[in-house]
Simulated assay, not measured.
Amino acid sequence: MIAHETEKVIIVEGLSDKRKIEEILNEDVTIICTNGTLSINRFDELLDMYNLDENDVYIFVDEDKSGLRLRKQLAKELPHAEHIYISKDYREVATTPYKILASLLVAKHFTVRPFYLQYN
């Protein structure tokens, strides 16, 4: 029997979040941009397209009203997903310092570009 290797998938809200995380990562990771909301139909499309029930899913959204609402929805639909939290002081993934984001990703076993662990 051949073991199926899972892929890592990060779910973010905005394109700026996606770009910043892509810049930090030093491995191939699928990053899904929700644009802040997810209809049932759109979620079902993403579920099938990215095999979210079988892959390692990480929810990395803002610490604001819309981000918390999205996190709650995703947690309900993807109970196996891991959550990555930023400080409420930064509120948004895109405005969180690179070094903080890199540290959060490393804590979840992502490979990041070492430069960003030192970058302020």
Rank of each mutant, 00 (worst) to 15 (best):
N55M: 03
T37C: 15
T6R: 12
G14W: 04
Y58D: 08
V112A: 09
R113E: 15
G67L: 05
R113A: 14
I24F: 00
L117D: 05
I100E: 00
L101E: 00
D28Q: 15
F60S: 07
L105W: 11
G14F: 06
H80I: 01
D56F: 11
I31M: 11
A102S: 02
I59N: 01
D28F: 15
T96Y: 00
L78G: 08
F60E: 06
R71F: 07
E54Q: 14
L46P: 01
A81D: 02
Q118C: 13
L105K: 07
V106S: 03
L105S: 07
N55L: 05
Y116E: 00
E45D: 11
I59S: 05
I31L: 09
G36C: 03
K99A: 02
L78I: 10
L15E: 13
L68M: 15
E23N: 12
Y58K: 07
V61H: 10
V29F: 00
H109T: 15
S39H: 13
K99L: 05
N55D: 10
P79Q: 04
K8M: 03
A94P: 10
I10G: 01
N55H: 10
G14R: 04
F43C: 02
D56H: 14
H4V: 13
A102P: 01
K88E: 12
I40Q: 12
L105C: 08
